[in-house]
Nucleic acid binder design. Sequence first.
RNA 1: GGUGCGGUAGCCAAGUGGUAAGGCCAGGGUCUGCAAAACCCUUAUUCGUCGGUUCGAUCCCGACCCGCACCUCCA
Length: 468
Amino acid sequence: MSLRFYNTLTQQVQPFEPLDTVGKVVRMYTCGPTVYDFAHIGNFRTFVFYDILRRWLKADGFQLDHVMNITDVDDKIIRNAVAQGKTLNEYTDIYTKAFLDDCATLRLERPETIARATEHIDQMAAAIHKLEEAGFTYRSDGSIYFRIAKFPEYGKLSHNDFSGMVSGARVDVDEYEKNDARDFALWKAPKAGEPNWETEIGPGRPGWHIECSVMAIQYLGATLDLHAGGVDLVFPHHENEIAQSECLTGKQFARYWVHSEFLLVDGQKMSKSLGNFYTLRDLFGRGFTPECVRYLLASVPYRKGLNFTFEGLKSAQTAIERLRNFKFRLESAKLAEGLNEELAAKATAAIAEFRASMDDDLNTAEALGAMFEYLRHANSAFDAGQFLAGNLAAAQDLLALFDSVFQVLQPTGQEGGMSEQEIETLIAARTAAKKSREFAKADAIRNELIEKGIILEDTKDGVRWKRK
RNA sequence: GGUGCGGUAGCCAAGUGGUAAGGCCAGGGUCUGCAAAACCCUUAUUCGUCGGUUCGAUCCCGACCCGCACCUCCA
């Protein structure tokens, strides 16, 4: 079966096909970070999901045209920037850079376009102007609001029924800045001490939702194939994006909406007051590697809540080691000629199952199951001397397929310490000492390396080393 | 209250109308000069509770219990 996703809009798992069936270009938009602070691991659960999505689309033969926004103007940013006496840009540059660095550390592919809200203010103003002219908005105290009563389909994404809440009609408008509780700001009136822009619709700053509509349409066209975000964005953010965009263009805004579930820490929502609030930097500071964070975040399918624990991180690290050991075995073993047909069949089956699992709404957990089940069979064959030269290519194909999505086999390089050449020289000296049964000398070399943070592993296929 | 997600072994977690993948931990074993590492094996008569449908339900239906999220700017 081919690729399919659960579409929030239809509440069904549907076969995925982009509008461009010839070039197979997928036009996708993902909601990026608001750069008011370091992103935390909950944010990165979603960003890792975007990356898995990207990589699997490519593995299935699609081309990508992916846009992600960076929200660099909002209430929190303004508040923090003012408090620190910085301009908006000075403040957001710090966290934008930190975010991009973190993404690179987690091996997240860069979207084809990263769009900053403040670089698209004029386009937003033009879109709001157009909405005004078409009668979808009203002004109140210098702000411009979207009138949801003008968009009968409002609620179709979050499956909320707002028909009973149209209200507002009897409320004295003077006492409320909005006519209807569900109306939302497209444009906010300037306030003293806050940054604002001079535009064709007057001075002010954009509301939160308009940036995504405007940038998505500008770079990808009126109708997107895929729009992704965290579940918390379904309402109101994505609902509002749909309202604005579809009123603006008269066309369906996004065909597939995919949303990732939340991450919990020890079964609870992450919060600073509970002391279970972690950034990537916190985890690296505790000695965890980027790969194990990535693996843990990727290993639970995106539509399931993910319970983040330190035990889970350790378990991810161990699982990665096992995969790396297998890779080493493939690279270093001296294999007898021939083909183990039973094992070859298992490799073929594992590759098919891995693909089928990923195609099934990105079921990463099931895909991992296929990988490990084969790994176990292959290791048994190795131990029995039944892993033959003819079995190598398929095993490497499976491992490559696995790593094209998970990206954890290559260890993150560590700086400093001994050079590889120095290490290899010492290992050779130890091997020679062992051969001449000078075990005291061999152990001395091993201890010397341990002190330098180099761990040796004697395997059947030679000596392996790694940095601690 | 409305909407959505979920409750499967010590922990994480997949899954199906026909009798429970996988990972981690733990226990056992193989290998090894020693050690470490590595590798293999074992580990749920049972899938929140109670009813119903069925030859048969963890998987379908109903009720209930519990957890999480969203309901105006939080991925």
